[in-house]
Amino acid sequence: MKTRYFVGLMAMLLVGLTLSQQSPFQQRVQQAINSGGNKFAETMKQDRDQALCSQYRDKLPPEEVGAFLERQRALIKYPADGKLMGDWKQGEALFTNPRKGNCYACHTGDPKEAGAGRMGPGLVGYGQRGTSEPVVKYTYDKIYNAWASMPCSLMYRAGYHGILTPEETAHVTAFLLDPASPVNAKR
């Protein structure tokens, strides 16, 4: 009885190992997700770093951070013309649109916009830091891929996911940095 049980267990383990590298618990999670229906399972698929963030409850251990940032930085794409600051007016629309940037869900921006969320730092007066190359690049990179500077940030990777194209990311960057933008209006 006991040996048969053992052999059975080994066989199951082997099958498990050859099918995937997942632990039995992870396989159980996947099974549960699949039971929620095809469309659910499809949208719940994770990339490697989403899985890593989930595993560590959004707090990566220090030894994972370097490689994580490296992988995320490699995902950033820039506009063909190389200009990281576009048109702030187009940026404003993208920043506000819930289907595009949806940035007001978490940030203040133009102080006139009522009911902005506060999950992210306030961005009113963001342009005070100037428009030097490092500032522009930091801002562009943050918007395109927030995880390239902050692992598992709760800010989503708008550019990486194609919610904003590189050109659109440049417009939103301008909305935050351009001195003429309402974000930076003198008060």
């Binding site: 999670v29 949208t43 719940m44 698929k45 994770q46 989403q50 963030c53 989930s54 409850r57 959004d58 007001y104 869900a105 978490c106 009911g115 902005a116 969320g117 506060r118 999950m119 995880w147 598992c152 709760l154 989503y156 990777r157 996911h161 194609g162 919610i163």
Partner: peptide
Amino acid sequence: HRAGDRDMNCAICHDSYAGGKVR
């Protein structure tokens, strides 16, 4: 479980941000 093109999970809103406001 973080997934989707908004990189979301329930904890982000309901734990990290409990007591705050979304809009």
